[in-house]
Amino acid sequence: MRTHLKLATATAATMLALTTLTACGGGSSAGAADGKDGKIKIMVGGLDKVIYLPARLTQQLGYFEDEGLHVTLLTEPAGVQATTSLISGDVQGVVGFYDHTLDLQVKGKQVESVVQLAHAPGEVEVVSDKAAGSLTSAKDFKGKKLGVTGLGSSTDFLTKYLAVKNGVQTNEFTPVAVGAGQTFISALQQGSIQGGMTTDPTVAQIVDKKLGKVLIDMRTPEGSKEALGGPYPSSSLYMNTDWVNGHKDTVRKLARAFVKTLKWMSTHSAEQIAAKMPSDYAQGGKQLYAQAIKDTLPMFTKDGVMPADGPATVERVLKAFNPNLKNATVDLKKTYTTEFVKK
């Protein structure tokens, strides 16, 4: 999440334009939620992305309401913007990648994962059909334009790591911020990128339309281990540590709601999960959306607990290319807590 964290009027303007989805049905997003009376704002790095599916599914299942919480879900196209909203105080939590907590710590911001939703990235490096002959592995990243959701995003992090791991320096290829969904697909079609890192349902649509193919698949723990050398905890609910310490009862309720969702997901089929989600999330059709969920399901935890060796993998990956972390000391124990999910 290498961003300059511009927290001026641009952030406020963006927030006003965001689509809001309120768990209590008739609720309003006006006014800053602060956790009082169970009113919480959570920013998601792309509500329609399957990697962040537990956020909207928890709402759809009514688990926030069951805990007496009134949760407003907001959406940003990339995790880097979501984190900016957290630091600026516009929201109380983010559903995004855990790796941002490490990057923020070395910048003097203490943020922690309170529910670990996934133990694999859920990300896929795809290559366009036109470029498939010259881009056959990460070793071929040199000289290429590669799509990421946003500069400083987790897709940017992982792309840089895969490059460095395979002998390509970060200045030898060009990351291009293309978002996800249709904007990513259009960039691939138009040739403005030769490949890129994205998630389902975008991956499923690219393969279905025969616009490209999967180059590196990190939707499973096995795929994560092969590409990154270990489990890579990704999607999580993370919050400012000071806020967590001051609102433990609220955080406990949030954790309970999310863990109930994870357990529900582990006992239901992809088709059953898809049926609970908003119909407009299935832009490629119901069958393709269900397949996208099925392909991504292995990334999710069943209990919200951080995998024991996950944080060390994330630190190793980030230090391989990120100059901010390379020589910095990271206190991994302060980047996550299992206090709430284990209770």
Rank of each mutant, 00 (worst) to 15 (best):
L86H: 04
Q81I: 13
L102V: 04
P54T: 03
L262Y: 08
D90R: 13
D249M: 07
V126H: 11
V148Q: 07
L53R: 01
A204T: 10
A13W: 05
A10S: 12
A23H: 12
P307Q: 06
K210N: 14
K144R: 14
K333V: 01
Y281A: 06
M299D: 01
V214L: 05
Q110W: 00
G35M: 07
T14E: 02
S266Q: 09
S29M: 08
V111H: 01
L21A: 04
Y161T: 08
Y52A: 10
D66S: 11
I206N: 11
R256P: 05
K213S: 14
G150V: 10
E172N: 09
V115E: 04
A187C: 11
E226V: 04
G45T: 14
I87G: 12
V95D: 01
K343I: 02
S134W: 13
Y98Q: 00
N166R: 01
A292E: 07
D37N: 10
V127P: 02
K109R: 08
D200W: 10
G108S: 11
L297N: 01
E315H: 03
T313C: 02
H119F: 02
M265V: 10
T338V: 07
L73Y: 03
A78S: 15
F300Y: 15
G96M: 00
E125L: 15
T20V: 14
T313V: 03
E222A: 13
F184H: 08
T337L: 03
A308W: 04
V207F: 00
K253I: 12
E123G: 02
K276G: 07
D48Y: 14
L61V: 11
T84C: 07
V176I: 15
A10D: 13
V305I: 15
G229A: 06
K6V: 14
G230D: 04
L69G: 09
V330I: 13
L325F: 08
V168C: 05
G212N: 12
A308H: 12
G304E: 05
G223V: 09
A23Y: 02
V251W: 06
G147Y: 11
V251M: 09
R56Y: 04
T198Y: 10
A274W: 02
N324A: 12
G93K: 00
L135K: 03
K302N: 10
D37Y: 10
Q283R: 14
E125W: 15
L102E: 04
S266R: 07
G31Y: 12
A55P: 07
L47E: 06
L104I: 09
I193A: 11
V178E: 06
